[in-house]
Write a protein that binds this DNA or RNA. Structure first.
Lengths: 329, 329
DNA sequence: GTGAAAGCGCTAACAT
DNA sequence: ATGTTAGCGCTTTCAC
């Protein structure tokens, strides 16, 4: 029964209707403390008669908890906040925070300004922080008082638990696939140099090339498609015998394919191309993209959940990345 | 100076350090009411000495405002909350809400259960609601007490202001482009039948086909790539003379291109394909996708801003959609 | 088991 | 122009 009350009900209203004190109503609603079966029944009835929903703000105020979970993204400009990857993190976090009465906030952390974290630190409404695109410098600048309520999607530290994809293993699977299918002149388009978590695939690449006695061919990238397109041309020019390009992001890989096509090279017959992420469109392109999976949503949900739960998380939680072999390699 | 205070500072602390009363400090910090230049200076100094950040929860509590902005998405299952489009809306909303101390929440509104809105209605922590994927039924179920703090991305009503892309104009531009480039057997892959805002392009299509004396060829879609792929086969089978397919989403259009390729049809020589949205990858595919722009982020930001501002919005705010002609049509 | 009372951090009358 | 006072809605000792 929705008594279209013009003013949302308060706990006081519930208590009055149930004929008990506010304290008792609170105990029943919050599910904490004692209450007789009778009282419990009365209160429950009042609650859904009134359509009562607890006010998380009031609750947070008295308990000293926060009401917002901050997603804080390091980047050179505020434009990072428009990134689809960031949006996915925010969306997944919002989904798990909502039942807890917690909202999601989105902050830009200017590159090279570690003080930007102090603001979050001093904000009592922030119950937790998910750092995205962490660097050593940033991790060191995490204020002590944030310890215990900050996690990282990317590299972590002793004080900041990390939730990340196992991109070393994913990269290894992709590179071994390339090798197994006969490729011997393999180039790699990396992520931004300043991003530590993007260096793991690079190290894996170096190790594997060294082990196989193959040449190292590295091109700097930025996760974006446009860069992939130009990188393809560069690769062809510098290494005419190239037979495979591994890009650390699907967007970049798609750009690489476009760039190869621009130059008249065939994929995969002349040059095989592989990406990383397994975006939804990866199976639709021509040729369909070979890549490694990246469960961004699950990672973000896990990070947010850890923060909401408040108990200490493992220093590092790695999510598996599996090869998805399609037509491009 | 960051006095790494272990406990975040309160207004009380600021007042004490500044040597004024809490009220004065409040006035200065909130920028409301009078304050002498001297007091203003003292308080400002205290604020950044202490690294003080106002607590939005406490502020919301006393002012009766909310601390969360809800993005509520209508759908048949909770899986809609994983949609990249929804994530983009959430991300853009979060970006504008954060400076206001407001967090974003994400709700699923089960299809055919109008009561699901009552929960939001009774939640005092919710300062506004952005409805996504609205139907007439849902709009009618919006509780009176939500009026003035609810908007729609999609169709609206007398009580619910709408913020949407002008997909009728965008579709018209695309269809005229198809016609101008010689296409005469044009099929359309629509959005979900139950989604009112997706019917506008359909009406535009019908009108233009009728005006040009061309046959109407409509295939139901769902905005997704997989459906586009199967739709392409259907189109070829039912209408062998087809020379163009317009899909109301880029994902679907990319699926259509894949399906056409599966069937051995060439794009654009045999069949031209156009989409809608202008996703970042649209320029990278082979062939590059002709489409119409869709400023989702700007729309969501405008919707959120209207809610935060609290002043009545225009009944309908339409965002322009422009033709982006590339290679596929 | 239940109620009375205090108070989380802040703003907004209301005095002064 | 500034301080005093009274709460916003809720949880939580502490008596009963």
């Amino acid at each position: 029964m929705t008594t279209a009350a013009h003013r949302p009900a308060t706990l006081e209203d519930v208590a009055r209707v149930a004929g008990v004190s506010r304290s008792t109503a609170s105990r029943v609603v919050a599910g904490t403390g004692f209450a007789s079966p009778a009282a419990r029944r009365q209160v429950t009835a009042a609650v859904d008669q009134l359509g009562y929903v607890p006010n998380p703000a009031a609750r947070a105020l008295v308990r000293g908890g926060g009401v917002r979970l901050a997603v804080a993204v390091l980047g050179t400009s505020a434009a990072v906040l428009d990134d689809p990857y960031v949006h996915q993190v925010v969306g997944a976090a919002a989904r798990v925070c909502t039942p807890a009465g917690v909202g999601v906030a989105l902050y830009w952390l200017p590159f090279g300004d570690p003080r930007s974290l102090d603001q979050l630190d001093g904000d009592r409404s922030v119950c937790g922080v998910i750092l995205v695109n962490t660097t050593e410098e940033l991790l060191e600048a995490v204020p002590r008082s944030l310890h215990g309520r900050v996690v990282s999607i990317g590299v972590g530290s002793a004080a900041v638990p990390s939730f990340d994809v196992d991109n070393a293993a994913g990269s290894e699977a992709v590179l071994r696939h390339l090798y197994a299918t006969g490729r011997r002149r393999i180039a790699m388009v990396t992520g931004p140099r300043w991003l530590p978590c993007a260096q793991r695939p690079v190290r894996t690449y170096r190790r594997l090339m060294a082990e196989a006695g193959l040449p190292e061919r590295i091109l700097p990238g930025d996760f974006r498609a446009a860069r992939g397109r130009t990188a393809a041309g560069e690769a062809l020019r510098r290494w005419p015998d190239i037979d495979a390009i591994y890009a650390i992001s699907d967007d970049t890989a798609l750009g690489v394919i476009a760039g190869l096509r621009d130059a008249g090279a065939r994929v995969p017959s002349d040059v095989a191309v592989a990406g990383f992420d397994d975006i939804p469109l990866a199976g639709m392109t021509a040729p369909a993209l070979t890549t490694a999976s990246h469960p961004v949503g699950r990672i973000a949900a896990a990070a947010a959940t850890a923060l909401l739960d408040g108990r200490p998380a493992a220093p590092v939680t790695l999510f598996p990345s599996a090869l998805v072999a399609r037509a491009s390699a």
